[in-house]
């Protein structure tokens, strides 16, 4: 019975599957084509920021649409279709590899969030999973030869400001008075607490950006050094023989495994962990409960008084 049901689904199911798979890779291929079309011809190896495609005039400052933003949107669209692909054809009984993998991911994320943030924040698992996926896939974009959005400070500053907004929201959960009181907690520490509040997004930005950009700088320096060395060793040979970049084969790949894959995924994990720690640290759950009870009591009193 089950087999026949599966067979009737097969053709339509497979077509939709293939379409979704194509949609995952389409934005990345588009970004690669754009990169090839607009890349400025450069001599040797050079370090440069994101390419600016066009600028829009805004009242305060010009708005630059750069490669980093385009690639970031490509990652977002790719992750969107990846999620559609993973959730396509779910069944109550997990019988496909895809569904088992998906369930494993969701289980792990919920375990991580519950372990680090507690029961009050169990709705945070999708957000944390989004942060990890966005950061990790953005860093992995460099494997396609694209400009990774995480090596542009503006993109990460945007994420860190979003996290800071969430932190402030959870501080306000105990009311405006509780928010002010939280700043004066050890009496007279107001300026330090304000600096601490500003330093949170700044340090999160610099940590992620610094790790990725240091990898980029070291890779470029090693590449340049190997180019110089191989031309020094073989430069005296005539013709094409002298231009064989034999030292540049293999060694940069080892660096790429560490800096692009390991460091990128580790930074995604650390960014998510810090988000969880800061957000759960900003929320004073005991005070919130007390406040909630007081409000309920007031409501009951009002209702009684009105009667």
């Amino acid at each position: 019975m089950q087999m026949s049901e599966k067979n009737t689904k097969t053709l339509k199911f497979k077509i939709v599957d293939c379409l979704l798979l194509v949609c995952i890779f389409l934005p990345i291929i588009g970004a690669i084509v754009l990169e090839i079309l607009t890349r400025a011809p450069s001599e040797g190896i050079s370090l440069s920021g994101a390419q600016i495609f066009f600028t829009i005039d805004m009242p305060i400052q010009k708005l630059y649409i750069t490669e980093a933003q385009i690639n970031s949107w490509a990652v977002v669209i790719a992750i969107f279709f990846l999620c559609l692909y993973m959730t396509h054809g779910l069944s109550p009984k997990a019988n496909t590899k895809r569904q088992l993998l998906l369930e494993w991911i969701i289980e792990q994320t919920e375990k991580l969030v519950n372990g680090n943030m507690g029961e009050a924040f169990k709705n945070f698992a999708p957000f944390i999973a989004t942060v990890i996926a966005l950061s990790a896939f953005s860093s992995l974009m460099s494997l396609f030869g694209l400009y990774p959005p995480t090596s542009d400070i503006n993109i990460i500053a945007g994420w860190a400001i979003a996290v800071a907004a969430i932190i402030t929201y959870y501080r306000f959960k105990c009311g405006p008075l509780g928010y002010v009181k939280g700043f004066c907690d050890p009496i007279g520490m107001l300026p330090l607490n304000i600096i601490n509040e500003i330093a949170t997004p700044v340090s999160m930005t610099f940590r992620h950006y610094g790790n990725i950009i240091s990898g980029v700088v070291v890779s470029v320096l090693v590449g340049a050094g190997l180019q110089g060395l191989s031309s020094l060793l073989l430069g005296s040979l005539p013709g094409l023989l002298g231009e064989i970049p034999f030292l540049q084969v293999g060694i940069p790949a080892v660096l790429s495994v560490y800096f692009d894959i390991f460091s990128g995924c580790l930074q995604a994990y650390i960014f998510a962990m810090l988000t969880m720690m800061y957000v759960s640290g900003a929320f004073n759950i005991d005070e919130f409960e007390i406040r909630k009870k007081k409000k309920e009591l007031k409501k009951i009193k009002k209702a009684n008084g009105g009667n």
């Binding site: 610099f206 940590r207 950006y209 610094g210 790790n211 994990y269 650390i270 810090l274």
Partner: peptide, 20 residues
């Protein structure tokens, strides 16, 4: 340990950003 390392790394990364 990885969390602690990430936080200890921050000061070095500030210097790196300044250097860049």
């Amino acid at each position: 340990m990885i969390m602690g390392c990430a936080i200890a790394e921050t000061t070095g990364l500030y210097a790196l950003v300044i250097a860049i």
